[in-house]
Design a protein around this nucleic acid. Structure first.
Lengths: 204, 204
DNA sequence: ACCTGAACACCGTTCAAGT
DNA sequence: ACCTGAACACCGTTCAAGT
């Protein structure tokens, strides 16, 4: 009906904007002091919003780390895309690993990794989401391995799915250890390359 | 001086007993509900002790997980001892991995792993302690690899220290993923064996 | 010397009240 | 429809008082 009532929604884009605003503030705080040590009040101050408003967009503090964890898509996706184009599979994988390790370089984003795993261990929904993402990633890497095998760039020594799973597990393990033992991304990338070489046995 | 005064220490073994009592109770609680979700009050109830008494033996809740993490020595040490005796290095490593994965089988000890890493990322003392232990473990595995190389059981394809680091990182990564993605210990041990085979290239 | 348990401080979450 | 900020509930930690 024309000339009906007041607008039902003031700004349809607002909710998404608020969520982004909160996530950015939270990411900054968490990286600085860690998930547990950061208080909701600090996040609110950083985001210039009140607690009441924050809880309008996130049901709990844990949901905020979960959202951050799932947001780390973009970089990883981009690196995976480059992988499909890489003539040299090993080089592509090494670059992927290096990007992964370097992402948590100067800032303390590495510390967040542990928090996210810890959270996931007690939050089935986050666990499920991470699991899905891991499955996708592994599948894409397996596909790249298959591709390289068809081009006879590497020996078909191992089922590609299995090789991909092993590589991803090692990547996660190295990233975690990086957060605690403070090894450099370059050193870790070199080590990952060594691993990939031995698992995938490239010809020449 | 004889017939001096009251005994200065009622029972010299008491402190250690109390610590053990608290750690056992805490371990049970943490495995059941996770570190964060467990309250000090619950640990106290389980240990049949008051909060005040607990804080006489641990300065903070975080110190309790730290102690638990560092207590996981015994099993690992035993497995490492068996490793030095293993004629077949690969078999020994696989057994080590299987023991590691199976330790957190039915119970939810796996969930604790994430908590410990998260804690370590923000607790330099725990990080240091874990780092020391990792260094020792890696050195022992590297020694076992050297030994097997001298017996020409495996090809000297890779510096033993580097191979050991890669294997340990993968082990940690697989254990973590196990806590979230619920893969079986047997499957993971099989995958780890595959990895070890490719990294260490045994002869025959 | 060791313990108890009430009290304190802090922080995640809610909700009545505003616009 | 969206926000504020005071209030609530919960839990880690402390401490005065007991034995």
């Amino acid at each position: 009906m024309p000339g009906d009532s007041m607008p039902r929604i003031a700004d349809p884009a607002l909710p998404e904007r608020r969520r982004a605003q909160i996530l950015e503030a939270a990411r900054a705080c968490f990286q600085e002091h860690g998930f547990r040590q950061t208080t909701i009040e600090e996040v609110c101050a950083q985001a210039r919003i009140s607690p009441g408003a924050l809880y309008r967009y996130f049901a709990a503090k844990a949901d905020i780390v979960a959202a951050i964890a799932l947001d780390a898509r973009s970089d990883a996706e981009a690196a995976l895309d480059r992988l499909n184009g890489a003539a040299q599979l090993i080089d592509g994988l090494t670059e992927l690993a290096h990007a992964f390790f370097a992402a948590c370089d100067n800032n303390r984003e590495a510390a967040l990794i542990g928090d996210v795993w810890a959270e996931a261990a007690h939050d089935p929904l986050l666990a499920k989401a991470l699991s899905e993402r891991a499955k996708t990633t592994t599948a894409r890497i397996a596909a790249a391995i298959n591709h390289a095998q068809r081009d006879s760039e590497i020996y078909p020594a191992l089922a590609s799915a299995e090789a991909a799973e092993i590589l991803m597990a090692a990547l996660d393990g190295m990233a975690l250890r990086r957060a605690i033992f403070w090894e450099g991304p370059a050193e870790l990338a070199r080590r990952f390359r060594l691993l990939a070489l031995h698992i995938l046995k490239p010809k020449r």
